[in-house]
Write a protein that binds this DNA or RNA. Sequence first.
DNA 1: GAGTAATAGTTGCATAGCTAATAAAAGGAG
DNA 2: CTCCTTTTATTAGCTATGCAACTATTACTC
Lengths: 139, 139
Amino acid sequence: MFDHCLYFNTAALARRLDREWALAYKPFGLTTPQGFMLRAVLARPGRLPSELADDLEIARPTATRALDALQEKGLIHRQVRSADGRQTAIAPTASAIEMGRGLNEASAEVSRRLKHVLGEAGFAETVLRVRDTRSALRA
Amino acid sequence: MFDHCLYFNTAALARRLDREWALAYKPFGLTTPQGFMLRAVLARPGRLPSELADDLEIARPTATRALDALQEKGLIHRQVRSADGRQTAIAPTASAIEMGRGLNEASAEVSRRLKHVLGEAGFAETVLRVRDTRSALRA
DNA sequence: GAGTAATAGTTGCATAGCTAATAAAAGGAG
DNA sequence: CTCCTTTTATTAGCTATGCAACTATTACTC
């Protein structure tokens, strides 16, 4: 019925992919968004919530909530910056750093599996089209 | 950071597109998912919640909630089927039918605008790639 | 330097989505 | 017929997301 609708197809695919990732991150006690947030923190420790929100293309309050969840699990901590008291640096805990390697391996495994199912070329082409579409709608 | 991740790009695009549709449906007092659900009901009155859930590729409980919202707004009503007491037929109210034309026009307008921004070919190609990816992950 | 504007983060409130559990009806086996 | 299974729909509980409003801090203006 909505076969030709970009929104419908995109949203349905996003839900489907979330299930893949959720399964991969479950052993770490993380949901999909939490897993991505933690990977972003691990990739560049000390960044601000607003920067992380930009990275993940989510609203700032959503980033706050994801960070709350990670803090609750003892995976990140917040440190108010002395230079500017409005800003808080987000750093991974030792426990998160330890988890990092496994998390990246699990992530790579999901990508591998998807590429296998979709074909290397099909996967790349789809990512490209979706990213281009996002860029075009940037405004 | 997640430029090559299919999930990240797809989920971000879905959120971006939701904003377009939300704007278009706002004058009708509907959210994006509610608008799509109502269009599905209007397209084929008398169907079951489970069939609508399949159409929209959402879980049955999610369909129940969307229908609750539409019923609350006086746009659909549920009728238990006499043939099988487990099933309920979903029908649009007169008010919903009246809204139907405007809703479809607003929907067409969104598609038109997106095609204009993305280019007719780019739009079609993206829809195709996303739909094919969904099919490939059907299993 | 006092008052105003801007900025970072958070909180409040609402919606959508899922899984698991429940209720009710129908179907099937004996 | 009675018990068990299957099916439809719903409810319960949780997470993610966004907008709007609020707080605290910094920056700017005069």
